[in-house]
Simulated scan of single mutants.
Amino acid sequence: MLIGVPSEIKDNEARVGLIPTSVHELVHHGHRVMVQSGAGLGAGLTDSDYIHAGAEIVDGPDRIFADSDMIVKVKEPLSEERKRLRPGQVLFTYLHLAPDPEQTRDLIASGAICIAYETVTSPSGALPLLTPMSEVAGRLAPQVGAHALEKSQGGRGILLGGVPGVPAASVVIIGGGVSGTHAATIAIGMGARVTVVDRSADALKRLSAQFGSAISTVYSTRSAIADLLKEADLVIGAVLIPGAAAPKLVTREMIGSMKKGAVVVDIAIDQGGCFETSHATTHSNPTYLVDGVVHYCVANMPGAVARTSTFALNNATLPFVLALADLGWQEALLRDRHLLAGLNVCRGELTCEPVAETQGLVFVDPLLAVQRG
């Protein structure tokens, strides 16, 4: 199989779909890999690194999209990339279709086989290809939130950990899953006063066992969230419904009740965000104000630490890339129901039920779509 790795073109996105060691594995399995010149530079990976691993370096994306059997990316394809996709071509990347009807329409029209990292499952029910980036985003959230709290950034001028005689900042984390747990780890390490809100009693028990008295746990209700936000200095939204749009757990009214200069960080923005006042921002222009509250809603947070994120992502994706290349997309999906769960669009049919429900489109069972080929 010929695998293509284009440069990412999303604002300040420096990650890359495959690292040289992944390329070497694919070449060892008898496959060809084309990498766009400079694609890995943001992650500290040079063209010579890829050449040494056995890749062919090409200028620009034209040959990669025209000739490759499978495109391996990081972020969802932007409009100009979607126009390059062709029928029968495999696209393996993050998609986050639920809040993006335009992308959904374009991918259906392309006739491509589009497999989303974020909906591939594991035998335990986890999301193994989303987890590494959720870990990164969770660990970044207190860091970027602390920066946004600085007065020069529009924040309240509060040090997250405080100093002797001055209280630490109050951090509220909505969602106790992978991102929320990692956010709590860093916020506690920075000395903040941390409260985690979740609707799962099991998650709250796990968090209490893991962190003990270092955090407070609160069962999630609208009233509980509203009360906590009034006193919060930093709120981190870390909720997830696999494949579906994030629920809007924080209303505009709740935002209006917060302290002026408080900060919200919406990790769920890829899936539409969990604050009513959220809209996607970029690393070039990461924040905006609503009712005096600083909003950080960068849609590709892990891109800020491109090298760490790229290597973490490849550790998770490589086995699936190898399976798709070695077996072909149909056989790989038929053999592995967990990889099949990642199939969102197949030859003009929408095969992700949460996306179909969110956008009011026709859902086709992914197994039937694959069997039809």
Score class of each variant (00 low, 15 high):
E118A: 02
G111Y: 09
P6K: 09
G189K: 03
R105C: 00
R252H: 14
V264Q: 02
V35T: 12
L130T: 13
V171G: 02
G30T: 07
C297M: 09
G42N: 06
N300A: 06
T358L: 02
F65D: 00
T131N: 11
E56C: 12
D202M: 08
A187K: 09
P167W: 04
G360V: 02
S284K: 10
A356R: 01
T310Q: 00
V72R: 01
G162D: 00
Q271E: 14
P61M: 12
V364G: 05
P142V: 10
N315F: 01
C274N: 11
A98E: 09
P366V: 14
T277W: 11
F320N: 03
A146T: 15
A55F: 11
Q330K: 15
V196W: 14
G261E: 11
L45D: 04
S220M: 15
L130F: 04
R222T: 12
L149G: 07
G88S: 06
A14R: 14
S22L: 06
A43E: 05
Q36H: 03
G176C: 03
A116H: 06
V74W: 14
T221M: 10
E135S: 07
V239Q: 12
G44A: 04
S220V: 09
T119W: 08
L45M: 15
T195C: 03
G303C: 06
A316K: 07
I158C: 00
A369F: 07
F92P: 09
G40L: 10
L322I: 14
D326C: 02
S124N: 03
F211T: 08
L127F: 12
L207I: 13
S284N: 08
S22P: 05
G155R: 07
R307K: 12
L289D: 14
D233H: 15
V370Y: 08
K73H: 10
K75P: 05
V178M: 05
L228Y: 06
S220K: 15
A280D: 04
M258P: 12
G42A: 02
A232W: 04
D270T: 09
G157D: 13
P302E: 10
S134Q: 07
M1W: 02
L289P: 07
A168F: 02
A201K: 13
A224F: 00
T308P: 03
Y50L: 03
I9D: 11
G261C: 02
K259L: 13
T119K: 04
G256Q: 14
Q210V: 01
A184F: 09
G17W: 03
A55S: 13
D233E: 10
K205C: 01
E25T: 13
R86V: 03
P123L: 01
S110L: 01
Q359S: 00
V235G: 09
I57V: 04
V120A: 06
A192F: 11
K151C: 02
N315D: 05
D336E: 11
H28T: 15
V218S: 06
I9V: 12
A299Y: 05
Y117R: 09
V178P: 01
L160G: 04
A312S: 13
I57E: 04
L340M: 15
S22W: 04
M133I: 11
V364Y: 14
G145H: 05
L204H: 02
C346D: 10
S309R: 00
F211P: 02
V33L: 06
A306M: 03
P20E: 07
T93E: 10
K10N: 04
L160M: 15
S200K: 11
R222K: 13
E253Q: 15
W329V: 15
I236V: 14
G38E: 15
V166N: 03
